[in-house]
Design a protein around this nucleic acid. Sequence first.
DNA 1: TTGAAAGCGTTACCAG
DNA 2: CTGGTAACGCTTTCAA
Lengths: 343, 343
Amino acid sequence: MKRRPTQTDVARLAGVSRATVSYVVNGIDASQVSSATRQRVLQAVDALGYQPDALAQSLRSGWTNTIGLLIPDMDNPHYWHIAKGVEHVAQAEQYDLLLISSSLDVDREMHSIRALSRRRIDGLILIVSYFEEVRAEIQQSHQHRPVVLLNTFIEGFDYVQIQSDVGVHDLMTHLLGLGHRRIGFVYGVANPQIGRNRLMLYEQALQQAGLRVDDRLIATCGTTVEDGYRTTQRILEAEPRPTALVVINDLLAMGALRAAADRGLRVPEDLSIASFDDINLARYTLPRLTTVAVDSTALGQTAARLLFQRLRDPNRAPQHQTIASRLIVRASTGPVPDSDGLR
Amino acid sequence: MKRRPTQTDVARLAGVSRATVSYVVNGIDASQVSSATRQRVLQAVDALGYQPDALAQSLRSGWTNTIGLLIPDMDNPHYWHIAKGVEHVAQAEQYDLLLISSSLDVDREMHSIRALSRRRIDGLILIVSYFEEVRAEIQQSHQHRPVVLLNTFIEGFDYVQIQSDVGVHDLMTHLLGLGHRRIGFVYGVANPQIGRNRLMLYEQALQQAGLRVDDRLIATCGTTVEDGYRTTQRILEAEPRPTALVVINDLLAMGALRAAADRGLRVPEDLSIASFDDINLARYTLPRLTTVAVDSTALGQTAARLLFQRLRDPNRAPQHQTIASRLIVRASTGPVPDSDGLR
DNA sequence: TTGAAAGCGTTACCAG
DNA sequence: CTGGTAACGCTTTCAA
């Protein structure tokens, strides 16, 4: 590992001052430097393989061309889709992405937020799992650089939110319209605020349909496919068994699909399953998933755009954007089975 | 956005010099600073919410506590698994991860590699798609910091490699043992070297079994589920139709599963499908996938460990590690159908 | 047309 | 025990 050549090395080799090197390399005020000098400098740059040190430039300029993204969990495609959106916008702006996963651990999340504030990243996008715990930390340690929050609201910060109400409403209308009366809810998600919100909307929809909320049909679990699988197994033991399941995301729903099959239930003939997100695999499961599509990549893009806008205009009022969601009916939902007296 | 408080601000408030602040904050040589001064400094730190600037520390120390990871594509869970492994090890070492996706674009890949070398990241893990094109760039621009290559070999660099031969061999033996003679190969992968290697091993296995390689049963495609779906549709039109399909990864295999179902073929009764990776979803598909398991997270971890080892011992000989793979037989492969004269 | 020097925020050496 | 100061590598203003 050789030492990197510095501006000084180039200057020395070219027989000019460091300032001149800087001018040439940055192509600033071309007329200021004679083309003879310019040639000498460029040759020296080439000979040494000199590249300006981004770190020193950052210290000088105050900008790092880096944004941070904190996600709860690297195992859920949903966050990958978001990250992809963020990365895409960032690349277009010549920014790099510092990715941190809190692995659904409060301490890690707290620690990461604090650590990020020490770095001089230009901005930060946060998907928070433990809101109550880290709220104060966010407010304190990130007064100095822009933060965009996803699905979380803190006074004074920009945020992007998934619009759940229309989606849940449409989904429940769809299921109720198919005749379902015993509709289960499987809920395990890295962002509890989304989970609670959707649960509430689910309960509202039931009540508006004149049905009562049955706690045995509501199950909380973790965030992995495995969790979805196990929890669905459990919930399917309720008597009478639910005829439809609303699952909080496609990943868990894939576990649910598997659980139904293992129990010998056909989807959707014996059991309807619907979920949220519309990850790209949702179109390829057997059967294809009925799901409330959330354009996660757009979510990431929107967050990133908000961040860059704030970078350019630090003083504008806090912004709030909503990502629409819409029901996509595929093959995993169907009419309630009527022959077995389950209604 | 207020200005961040600096060491100087703290020093002024505490009525000491910057050096003293540095000593106190870094807890160095505790005995050197009187506890009265120490208290004053700590109070000032608290009052101002001072946090040392990581950027300035980096410039000073030469270390950024950041490693870079370049992946080909954010849509394939395989790379997320790898990233997870890398991130995990990095976090344990108090390092952050700069994640860059080349989005399967040569220019982007080239550009990213160059851009990364300007940043003073401490080390780099590279999953390269366009080896020939970027090889020279890697050699030139990264002589100054450690690089670990995945599934790619360049003289003098550390690298980690997936061991394909045993896996492919076992898989082919499995399929041939089930009586399959017309075995297709669907191949589309971000790292062409892996693809070519597995293809070669597949052809070898066929030849050793006294079968000839039929080009119509070999299909190249892109890297998405959609590609897997479409390509499988196409390959299933061959006459006589293959009775088994080896698919280069689980993601494409999920598309293949769907394509088989859409064509009215039962898996594994009418068509066997097997693949590589064993992503966590492979256990939940319908039917569960027979796959050659590659512990991608371990792959990432190994790469990261190699990197940190080199950071500690820059002069040791280039290292080479192999990640074993092993066949996991699940439900997507079965005996060749014999009733329809396909053999 | 070029160069000298200040400054970004830190750490570490050397005096006092 | 504490403070001054040089250095990390760069950009930019001001002078020559």
